[in-house]
């Protein structure tokens, strides 16, 4: 079976240099964009994720190859097959990423990436240790069934990961309009990492933001609602191990104490779901915020009312 190099291996020196460059920019512009403890936690999680990924890759590749054995067609090793594979892999990533925010089982792995209150290039490297355990790779299985060779898919997945690195920054504001329309950009991804009610569970795209526009999950970044980063219940700890497993521990605790008919809900329902409705989900947070916004007149309306009174 054909093999290809992992493009991420070649990108690592570039990652390090770009983080260094962003640190220098932060030093000149705003020192609070970086925090040494947060950066070390992110990078340690990234390093651990690489180790965990390397240890499980053999099994993932074997599974992919086994599924590929039942392929519907033979996809040739041509340039257009790579392009098609890259686009479809990005669609598979969108589906995975959306479920990673909507199903607590998958969120338990993905939350690690969101657990920093900072948004910089080191945040991009804050990756899961438990991706294999949560079976995140199942979202790529349809590609193998279609006939894309595993080596081609994993190569494209590596390129996808590399693309997503540079969008984790506050240094880049907005890109030209046509890029913002098609591609995932720092602006779009800042929205994704924000906990502002308006931005929760939006912009799941990996490379192409068109998936969000197509499936109704797109939200543009606004000047009057600056993103605040992290998770709804901030971690409040720089402990690497706790960052890696805290949601799994939370699931175990909730399932242990829940009544029998509710245990499964803590595994498969959205993060924040509780059987007695005592906790907040992204929907309840957004709904409350929308109700408040509807009850309070907007600034424009207030200005209009003042105008009428003055007249």
């Amino acid at each position: 079976m054909a093999t290809l190099p992992n493009p991420v291996d070649y990108a690592v020196p570039g990652f390090i240099l770009l983080v260094l460059a962003e640190m220098l920019v932060a030093c000149a512009a705003d020192r609070r964009r970086y925090c040494p403890q947060d950066t070390l936690t992110s990078l340690a999680l990234g390093f651990g994720s690489t180790i965990a990924g390397a240890l499980s890759f053999g099994l993932v590749f074997a599974t992919a190859s086994w599924v590929w054995g039942y392929r519907l067609m033979d996809v040739p090793w041509t340039w257009w097959a790579f392009v098609l594979c890259f686009v479809l892999d990005d669609l598979a990533y969108y589906v995975f990423h959306r479920s990673a925010h909507r199903v607590r089982w998958f969120w338990a792995s993905h939350v690690i990436h969101h657990s920093s209150q900072h948004y910089n290039l080191s945040t991009a490297l804050r990756q899961t240790w438990t991706g294999f355990f949560s079976l995140a790779f199942i979202y790529r299985l349809p590609l193998f069934l279609l006939g894309f060779p595993p080596a081609m898919v994993f190569f494209c997945a590596g390129l996808n990961l590399i693309y997503q690195f540079w969008i984790h920054t506050e240094v880049v504001g907005r890109c030209p309009r046509w890029i913002e329309a098609v591609m995932n950009t720092p602006s779009h991804h800042r929205v994704h990492h924000a906990v502002n009610p308006r931005y929760l569970d939006r912009n799941y795209a990996g490379v192409f933001i068109v998936w969000d526009r197509l499936f109704g999950t797109f939200e543009a970044e606004r000047e009057d609602d600056r993103p605040r980063y992290g998770i709804v219940k901030q971690l409040g700890s720089f402990n690497v191990l706790w960052a890696a497993v805290h949601e799994w521990v939370g699931i175990a605790r909730d399932m242990w104490s829940a009544p029998w008919n509710a245990k499964l809900g803590y595994l498969i329902r959205e993060p924040g779901w509780s059987h007695d409705g005592s906790r907040d989900t992204s929907q309840t947070i957004r709904a409350r915020w929308q109700n408040q916004a509807a009850a309070e007149p907007s600034k424009e309306q207030q200005v209009g009312a003042d105008h009428v009174q003055a007249a």
Partner: peptide, 16 residues
């Protein structure tokens, strides 16, 4: 690289 970047962040006195 991880350790070096952590060191640079401290050296530059980022955060605070």
């Amino acid at each position: 690289g991880v350790l070096a970047l952590g060191g640079v962040a401290r050296l530059l006195r980022l955060g605070g």
